[in-house]
Amino acid sequence: MPQRVDVAKTWKLFIGGQFVRSESGQSFPIEHRRHGTTLNLCRGSRKDLRDAVEAAHSASEKWASASGYLRGQIIYRMAEMLESRRSEMSEALAAVGTSTPKKRLDEVDAAIDRLVGFAGWADKIEQILGGQNPVPGPYYNITVPEPSGVVGVLPPDRPALLASISMLAAPLCAGNTIVMLAPEGHPLPVALLAEIIATSDVPDGVINIMTGKREELMWHLADHREVDAVSAANLDDETLTELRQRAAESLKRVHHDSVTAAGWSKHESRCSPWNIEPFVEMKTMWHPSAC
């Protein structure tokens, strides 16, 4: 009997709605922590990042002008698709070393709930953050939040799925488009997330996901003048300082959170309007009133 050979895929980059190989032709291996097998992922290059930002920028106008209600429906669809692939995602978490089956399913379920939470905020965030301001004189004075534009997302290694989803969905629901660099140490759940997003009615280019070496990519992201904000978590002081300095060159907002592994599970604090607020710009308008 001939022995069957496993057919293992190379996980590709997700750019502009397409699954592409790295322009560099390079990949990198990670070890499947439970099976001891080797998995290969594309090692995104500077030029792949450029393409991802270009795709995010082109998708930006349409996504920003879509109604909050529609954005909410699409994010909810992501939750539905993730729900239907719970076991596969749980397996991906096992591959990056999340210990017990219960812990894995808990993380997947929390991630699904997080998506549903941000789907809900999509058409409410404007009322929460915006409003009519009291001014002396015969004017209406109205403040509305608008999305920043293209947001670079740098999630921490753990919890790979829940942190990535939380950091992705917050700017997304407000109308930003996303370039996410998968956690370098534990990229597999996010690579799988790209396949879920691809089947979730998310317009092409609205979410772009890259795997690869942080060091090779994040500084180009920080320098890129078409990127309007960066969301990062649990960076060391030195990296954070350099990120802030380089981002300042192009007046990029940098939002950084330090969150413990357990902290990501706290739905109230991780799915609040204040997780979204760093990725909007406030626009204030004056308008003469009748009297």
Binding site: R50, H57, H220, D223, H224, R225, E226, E249, S250
Partner: peptide, 9 residues
């Protein structure tokens, strides 16, 4: 400049 520029530049 060794960095990517934006369309609005």
């Amino acid at each position: 400049r060794k960095r990517y520029m934006a369309a609005h530049d």
